Computed example of a mutant assay.
Amino acid sequence: MVSDAFDKLEQELRRGVVVLAVLSQLRELRYGYELRQSLTDKGLPIEEGTLYPLLRRLEAQGVLSSEWRTADGKPRRYYALSPEGERLFRRLTGSWRGLNEAMGNLLEAS
C-alpha cells in the first residue's frame, strides 16, 4: 500500500519537473533521441511515450520551434526553444529555484 502511494507521488513529482528539464536541454537545437539521451545522461530518464507528445504539445503552445533536417539520409525533427520558450524557461527556472530553496528550508527543519 505504502509502495503504491510512493510510486504515484513520485510520478507526480517527476511530471512536475519534466517540462523544465526538457526546456533546459533545448536551448540548442536537438532531435528527439538526442534530447532523450541528454536527459538520461544527466539522471532524468524519460520514456519515448512521454517525451514526444510533450514536444508536440510544447510546440503547439508556441514554446518550441522545430524543423526537419536530413542527416545521413534520415529525416529528423529538431527542436529548440522559441523566443517565448526562452522567456518561459527563465521564469520557470526562477520559480524552481525559489521552490527548491523553500523545500530545502522545510526539509532541514524536519
Rank of each mutant, 00 (worst) to 15 (best):
R15Q: 14
E59V: 10
L29P: 01
P53N: 09
L39T: 05
A109R: 15
L35D: 01
G49D: 05
A102E: 12
T93H: 11
L39F: 08
P53C: 09
E84H: 05
L81K: 00
S65E: 15
K42M: 12
S24A: 06
Q11I: 09
M1T: 12
S110W: 09
I46E: 04
K42Y: 10
V18L: 14
G73K: 05
Q11T: 13
M1G: 14
R91D: 15
E12G: 04
M103H: 10
K74H: 05
R90A: 10
L26E: 01
S38V: 14
L106G: 09
L64A: 02
R76G: 04
D7E: 09
A71P: 00
R91G: 11
G43Y: 13
A80W: 03
E108I: 08
E59G: 10
T50H: 10
R14E: 09
G49T: 04
L64F: 05
R87S: 12
A60L: 11
G62N: 05
A5L: 15
L23V: 06
Q11A: 15
E10N: 13
L54S: 02
L44C: 03
N105D: 12
R56K: 15
T70A: 02
Y78K: 02
Y52L: 08
N105R: 13
V22D: 01
S82P: 00
R27L: 09
R27M: 07
E34Y: 01
E67F: 09
R69M: 10
S82C: 04
R57N: 10
G32V: 03
L51F: 03
K42T: 13
Y52W: 08
P45F: 07
L26K: 00
S66M: 09
G62P: 06
A60T: 11
R15Y: 08
L35R: 03
A60G: 12
L20A: 10
Q61W: 08
R36S: 03
I46Q: 02
V2G: 09
A80G: 01
L99G: 10
E48Y: 11
R57G: 05
A109E: 14
D41N: 15
Q37M: 02
G49E: 05
E101H: 14
D72E: 11
R77K: 13
A71W: 03
L55I: 06
L13Q: 11
R27I: 07
T40G: 07
V2L: 12
G49L: 04
V22G: 00
F6W: 13
L92T: 08
